[in-house]
Design a protein around this nucleic acid. Structure first.
Lengths: 145, 145
DNA sequence: ATAAAAAAAGACATAAGTGTCCTTTTTTAA
DNA sequence: TTAAAAAAGGACACTTATGTCTTTTTTTAT
């Protein structure tokens, strides 16, 4: 449910937010090196994030990507939404076309609880929260702090 | 986490268990028609189930597949294990290589709770349970009862 | 103006899951 | 013993996610 795209996006958004300073920009190459991610693939991810206004981008020499003021309020679910959509949180765990409270599949109730709890967790976890956890040493992400 | 292979396998195993009668066999064609599944692909699934002794198979004319006595005690997790393995229940939700209680990712604790709950749910749900739920009208699976 | 730097975009490569088709092997029934 | 029926297995096609490479567009600095 969480693809590489989402994983790379999260790390980039966290990094940019940690380094949010007046006029400070990071190119795809710098980001790929810092975070040890595939540069060309990361470029696509960055473009999608910029298009969705989750981060900002400036073209030309000295250009690059940067965190917006709102970026800190972005939730993990927002990032998942960009790359996977929210279908996962509606679909039946056993792949049944029809599956709801009226017509439940054999694990409907448990699975429904699972996915809605997971959704809530992702929804409530903002970039701000993650950075605060990283700062406090309560959580870790490779190559970030 | 639950692939088409697992979905098809579950439906077949349930069907065969519902029709467990002395000497009664079903060929891949009959199963594919009954369950409305792609016949050639289902054949592969059936082979893997037979190889793992989750169902039995007999070659030759009048041959086919059938449920074993133990088939009723098979859990959903057993079927998942055949086609996806159990990696999902160990892997980090954010794709981090290192992620455990010592070095948790930002959603480690919540995610760990979800996936272990889900695992327990799959582990405790046997084919017998599913058939009993289907019989009682408590659950539904397309083309099964 | 022009060259360079960077984002943006398009085309292609690879791997895994899904799915189909064809051939081989086994085994039973005639 | 032979033909047919069925499982078993191998090879290939399609799709999506992942990843790379090249070209185009934008923009700044000289």
């Amino acid at each position: 449910m969480i693809s590489k795209s989402t994983e790379y996006a999260l790390k980039t958004v966290v990094f940019l937010s940690q380094n949010l300073e007046e006029g400070k920009l990071f190119g795809k190459k710098a980001l790929a090196e810092k975070l040890e991610l595939p540069e060309s693939y990361l470029a696509k991810v960055l473009q999608q994030l910029a298009k969705r206004n989750i981060i900002g981008s400036i073209k030309g020499p000295q250009g690059g990507f940067y965190a917006l003021p709102e970026t800190l309020n972005i939730s993990l679910l927002d990032i998942v939404d960009v790359f996977e959509g929210l279908e996962f949180f509606k679909k039946c765990g056993l792949g049944q076309e029809e599956c709801d409270d009226e017509n439940p599949c054999p694990i409907h109730k448990d699975y429904e609880a699972f996915r809605s709890n997971l959704k809530k967790t992702l929804e409530n976890k903002t970039i701000r929260d993650i950075i605060s956890d990283l700062d406090a040493g309560k959580a870790f992400l490779k190559n970030l702090i």
